[in-house]
Simulated scan of single mutants.
Amino acid sequence: MNSSSNVVGLAPITALVVDDEQLAREELKFLLNSIGGVEILGEGSNGIEAVELIEDLQPDVVFLDVQMPGLDGFAVLKQLIERRGVQKLPQVVFATAYDQYAVRAFDVNAVDYVLKPFDKSRIQQAVERTRARLAEAGQESSTSINASAGKDAGMDALLEMLHRQQTTPRGPAPNKLIVQVQSRLLLVDQSEICFAEIEEGIIRVVTPTVEGHSKCRTLEDLLELLDPSMFWRAHRGYVVNINHIREVVPWFKSSYQLRMDDKKQTEIPVSRAQTKRLRELFNL
């Protein structure tokens, strides 16, 4: 556990840091300690751990990554509401590399959201908002005899909102995709992507000039963001942009490989289940 020196005249707020990337956790803990007035009770690396740690440590605020294996940040919040009710929820600051989640974060009553890579002044602002929200909650509990009933009504509304968000069809795919290249987050036109592959849970995205990683957890998640008229799942481990196929190479036993137009001219296998689709695409 880490702790920081108190902000003058204010009691420290207690915090939990949850992110599946260790470097992101370390960076966030460093910034919180440098700001002061925050006592870090612990850290977790996935949504399942988050639920248990929140139950055990009961922090004032949770800095919660949106996209994590097991349970994402919104699913963590939903599970906590179902277990404990809104009145026992900590404050939540969502952390994400995608600002498309910002509106949704506020829709589920988060106190704030912060974008990766983290900025100290932005983290400080999130801490100040958390402190203000905690002060408001304290005043409400001491002055309103109907606070519990109001929060129960809020729980029902919030559960309904979360359910609606999970079941509402997504809008059209964005034209650009975020690709992480070392510490940089690059916006890449979908048309520039040659292919994506998954290996040991990491999705690699390749263009003619850039090679990086997607924050998506599965190729299914990635495909939801991609234009289906361009991208095809040629193999369980690969998604290809059909406009970047340079050559179709006959392989053994009536199978094929695709030679892409990236710098390495990567050869990608076509699964037997997708051979028919390949023949339809190129009239083989």
Rank of each mutant, 00 (worst) to 15 (best):
A135P: 03
E224G: 07
T167M: 15
E136L: 14
S229D: 13
K215W: 11
G150C: 12
D189Y: 06
A149R: 12
Q190K: 14
V179G: 00
S183N: 14
A157L: 03
E160N: 10
L115F: 03
T218V: 12
A196P: 12
D227S: 14
N175F: 11
S142C: 13
K116I: 09
V206C: 03
I145H: 10
L187N: 10
E136G: 13
R122V: 07
I178A: 03
D189T: 11
G171F: 04
T143S: 14
R204F: 04
D119T: 12
L177V: 12
L115V: 02
R129E: 07
E160C: 05
I193E: 06
N146F: 06
I123P: 01
A149F: 06
T218Q: 08
I145A: 15
E192W: 09
R129T: 03
S191G: 02
D119F: 11
L158V: 01
E220W: 07
C194M: 03
E160L: 10
A132R: 15
V205R: 04
Q166E: 12
S229M: 14
Q124G: 10
V206G: 00
E211N: 00
V114N: 04
M155T: 11
I145L: 08
E160F: 08
P117N: 13
R170W: 04
S191C: 04
H163F: 02
E211P: 00
T207H: 00
V179A: 00
N146G: 06
S142E: 15
E192D: 14
L219R: 01
A126R: 12
R204K: 14
M161R: 06
P117C: 13
A173V: 15
A173T: 15
A149W: 04
K215A: 04
L222Y: 05
P117A: 14
D221Y: 10
V181E: 15
M161D: 06
L185I: 07
E220L: 12
Q165W: 10
H213N: 02
P228W: 11
P172A: 09
G171V: 10
T207Q: 01
Y113F: 11
Q125Y: 11
F118T: 00
K215I: 08
L134R: 09
D221T: 09
P208Y: 07
E192G: 03
Y113G: 03
V188P: 02
R170G: 09
L185P: 02
A196S: 15
H163L: 09
D152N: 15
A196I: 12
E199C: 11
V127G: 00
G201N: 06
N175V: 05
I203W: 01
E192I: 10
E199H: 10
L223I: 11
E136P: 04
D221M: 11
P172R: 09
A157H: 06
E136T: 14
K116T: 07
A147Q: 08
L219Y: 01
A132K: 13
S229V: 13
A137T: 10
C216R: 01
G212L: 10
A147V: 07
V206R: 04
I193A: 04
Y113H: 08
L226A: 03
R204H: 08
P117Q: 13
Q125T: 10
T167Q: 15
E136Y: 09
N175C: 09
E128R: 01
S214T: 00
C194E: 02
V210S: 01
Y113K: 05
P169N: 14
V127H: 03
R129D: 09
D156N: 05
R184K: 14
Q182F: 03
Q182V: 06
K176G: 01
I203P: 00
I123A: 03
